[in-house]
Design a protein around this nucleic acid. Structure first.
Length: 119
DNA sequence: CAGTTGACGGCCC
DNA sequence: GGGGCCGCCAACT
């Protein structure tokens, strides 16, 4: 990803995520060149509103959870998009702000985490 | 130019 | 084991 801005590199990496696969923020950060850039990755994607340019819905947390504040239609929409790409979800219990365990859908990382075929 | 923030992650209590 | 705090880097105001 050469000599582009870090910001631009992040997009380049995310755009390379193949359909049917997902990448964690930390993974993207590492591919960009610095594993500590996870926050910047999130920042970069937040700025991106067009999933036509960058498939930001394929980026999830290391646990496979979708972003809480996904702009493009909300987190629920993100799950839908991923499902339509053939990604398998598993029910998982996550605690919300009220410390109540609620069932949420998480990507099956074992099956769909990006293989990193490009390096 | 300096302080704040942010789609996270990891270590510590 | 769960919750909370801190850190890391770049963009933003």
């Amino acid at each position: 990803m050469e000599n582009k801005n870090t910001y631009q590199k992040i997009y380049e990496v995310v755009k390379q995520i193949p359909k049917g696969k997902v990448a964690s923020y930390s993974l993207v950060a590492r591919l960009v060149g610095n594993s500590k850039l996870t926050r910047v990755v999130g920042y970069a994607l937040h700025q991106n509103k067009d999933n036509k340019i960058v498939p930001c819905h394929r980026v999830v947390t290391k646990d496979g959870y979708v972003s809480d504040a996904f702009i493009f239609g909300g987190a629920n929409k993100q799950v839908e998009l991923l499902k339509s790409e053939g990604i398998k979800f598993i029910k998982k219990l996550k605690k919300d702000k009220n410390k109540k365990e609620k069932e949420v859908e998480a990507v099956d990382m074992k099956e769909h985490l990006w293989d990193r075929i490009c390096w």
